[in-house]
Structures are given as C-alpha cells and as structure tokens.
Amino acid sequence: MVTATIQNLGHWTLSLFERMGRASIFFVRVLAAVPSTFTRPRLIIKEIYSIGVLSLTLIIVSGFFVGMVLGLQGYVTLVDFGAEESLGVVVAITLVRELGPVVTALLFAGRAGSALAAEIGLMKTTEQLSSMEMMAVDPIKRVIAPRFIGGIISMPLLTIIFTAVGILGGRFAGVGLLGVDEGSFWSQMQANVDLVDDVANGMIKGVVFAVVCVWIALYKGYEATPTAEGISLATTQTVVNSAFAVLGLDFILTALMFV
C-alpha cells in the first residue's frame, strides 16, 4: 500500500519531468524557427489577425467594465476619507500593475489560447501536420512559429489596450457618473504613476504572460492525442495551465518589481 503510493509519486514526478523536458525542447525548436519566419511577414500578419484582432472586442468590453467597477468600488472606499481625488491613482495603478496584464492574459488564454490549441490539435488529427512533413515542410516553421510570433506581438498590445480602456472606464464611472473632479482625477494619476516603475513593469508582465500563454497553447495543441477527446483535453488544459502559470508568475513578478 505504502510502496504503491510512493511508486505513484515517483511515477508522477518522472512524468512531470518528462513533460517539462518535452515542452522545453518544443520551445527551443520554435525559437529556432522564429528568425526564418520573419522573412514571411504575411503568415505572421494572418495570425495577428486571428489571434489579436479577433480578441479585440472581448478585451475592450471587458476592460471598460473592469475599469468602471474599479471606479465605483474605489470611490465608495475613498469617499469615506474625503480622498476621492485619488480615484484616478487607484484605478490607474491597479490596472497598470496588476489587472491589465493578468486579466488580459486570462481572457487571452480563454479566447485565443484555447482556439490555438484546438486548431493545431485538429490539424494533427486530420493528418495536416503529417502531410506537411511529407511535403518536406517543417510544421514547426510553417504552422507553429507564425502563431508564436503573432501571439507574442498581439498579447502585449491587447494588454496595453485593456489597460487604457480600463482607465477610461474608471473615468466614466468616477468622473462621469459620480462627479469626481476631472482635473484632479488625471493630475493625481500623473503625479503618482511612473512610466518606468509602473507602466514599463506592467508591460514586462504582459510580454512574459504572452510567451507563457502562447507556448502552453501551442504545445498542448501540438502534443494533443489525435482524437476528439484529445483535442477537448488539450483546450481545457491550455486554459487551466495558463491560468495557473499566469497567476503564479504574477506573484513572483510582483514580488520582484514592486516590493
């Protein structure tokens, strides 16, 4: 009984290492294929369209609502201290440092990450990847690398857009609905948000999350078992693993950047 448990633990650990190893090898292969992909910008543009542009509605609507909620909640708390002029700071710092990168990454994993995993899984199931190999075309170069680059260009842009729209949402709720003074909303924000410490660090988070989310989605799709069940598992795991990875990394990055 005890031996069996220990054996299971050992088996689990070994398979964890094996999966991490395979994912790392995959990552290196994709990175190696990246330079040659830049010679074919059309492939990348197509992926930016399906990964980035098609996620835009979701990102803008979510960003605006998240910003409005921040505006309302921030106002309710700050007004007790007579400090509602600081609403702009609260909304902007929250969005720029945390919610912008994290919520964008979670939405991205749900919208674009799962779609990427399913698309590649399906290409594998229908032997499209295999047939490319037989046509002497490397699927890593032709299929995976353009999506990787497209995702890594798209997601930081989406993060920036989410953050900016969120701040506008906060302004709409705070200034528009609750009557906070517009001048102090912006000026206090400007005085307390730093381009390097806050905005740049937030963008670094956005880029890191982009690499992780796209990597997970592409790997899960590429390694999917070529069955309907395998694809459904791959999409689920993409979303779940991305969420864990993003939240865990966010804690580490926040500790490194802001403490």
Binding site: T126, E127, A136
Partner: peptide, 15 residues
Amino acid sequence: RKRMGMLFQSGALLT
C-alpha cells in the same frame, strides 16, 4: 521527401 509524394487516406488537405 521532395522526390516522393504521399497521398493520405483522408487527403489531409489544409483546411
């Protein structure tokens, strides 16, 4: 591989 063609059972066309 450029000197061999292969016809997959499903066709395996790019969808």
